[in-house]
């Protein structure tokens, strides 16, 4: 790409890829807009070329716990106990550790924390333990396959907590899951990236994609917005000079994106306007339920038995 004279890169899609590619691009002072990649190390290394449009792990988890507390309070505090199920890799274990420390401060009792490997061959034991402990809320942090397996096993064992509240979950805001297992997916909540459903441009993009028979995922508006953000910076820089584009990105106030964020403002490469939202599977759709200013549906909590 260096020899081809590339001006900027948008992409990454996964934390591990972003970590390696942003560093490689930094060697050539190549501006890099990260679309999806939540590890905070992406922006904590002081790379001048790296700009993350979306929120990082710290922001998402903080927001996830704040939102959960608010949702519970608004419903009259029906939930007191929580159980955590997590994949035992960096992502799941890190998240579980954080939740274990933070949830009790917010008045939730963590009954148990159950790790599982990826791939997991069977989730029955985990389901049985959830059944025995009977938590009000289940917080799963697993990848797609394992979460679907868990949700299906819970349905089979007829386990119904007051809520399944996922954080950055691979399945809970995935239309494939909703379409293939509508019963298991019903009312599952997630705190994750999602487009702003009130923005006509976002909905139009979603319609055009679904018309092609493809599943809508949050990666699409994230990537689309990141490209728009870069296009805006290129126009303002009015140059293909990398330093000028980097400068234009650093001073960006771009607001015409598809995400539920305010105007873009980068501090040390992180867009401080970025924040996750809470989604919930309702019927055959994934609705934004929290915060209220971006929502297009009311939260269903506790889940009807």
């Amino acid at each position: 790409m260096q020899s081809e004279g590339v001006v900027a890169i948008v992409g990454g899609y996964a934390s591990a890829i972003c970590l390696a590619t942003t560093q490689a691009a930094a060697r050539y002072d190549l501006p890099y807009v990260v679309d999806v990649g939540v590890t905070d190390a992406i922006v904590n290394r002081g790379l001048k070329n790296t700009f993350r449009f979306g929120p990082g792990f710290g922001t998402v988890t903080q927001q996830a716990m704040d939102n959960l507390t608010k949702i519970n309070e608004a419903a009259g505090k029906p939930a007191k106990t929580v159980m955590l199920v997590h994949e035992d890799g960096l992502f799941g274990a890190g998240l579980a550790k954080l939740l274990q420390a933070e949830l009790p401060k917010r008045g939730f009792e963590v009954l148990d924390t159950l790790p599982h490997p990826t791939p997991a061959r069977d989730m029955t034991n985990i389901a049985l333990q959830i059944k025995a402990k009977n938590p009000d809320i289940l917080i799963p942090s697993s990848y797609y396959g394992e979460f679907v397996l868990l949700a299906r096993t819970m349905q089979q064992q007829k386990i119904k907590p007051k809520a399944i509240y996922a954080v950055l979950n691979g399945a809970a805001s995935n239309f494939r899951f909703v379409k293939e297992f509508p019963e298991a997916a019903q009312f599952v909540m997630d705190c994750n990236h999602w487009h702003d459903p009130r923005k006509p441009a976002a909905e139009a993009l979603r319609k055009s994609l679904e018309a092609q028979g493809k599943f809508w995922t949050y990666n699409i508006p994230m990537n689309y917005s990141a490209v728009l953000l870069l296009a805006d910076a290129l126009e303002r820089a009015a140059s293909t000079d990398r330093a000028k584009v980097t400068e234009a990105l650093a001073s960006s106030t771009f607001a015409d994106h598809l995400m539920p964020y305010g105007p873009t403002k980068f501090v040390n490469g992180q867009n401080t306007g970025a924040a996750p939202v809470n989604t919930q599977v309702q019927g055959s759709d994934i609705k934004v339920i929290f915060p209220a200013e971006f929502s297009n549906a009311k939260v269903v909590f506790p889940v009807p038995a």
Binding site: L114, H116, P117, A120, N125
Partner: peptide
């Protein structure tokens, strides 16, 4: 495997 998954945890089932 099932019992060690239950008594230790799923990650240690092996």
């Amino acid at each position: 495997e099932s019992l060690s998954g239950l008594f230790f945890n799923e990650s240690l089932a092996q």
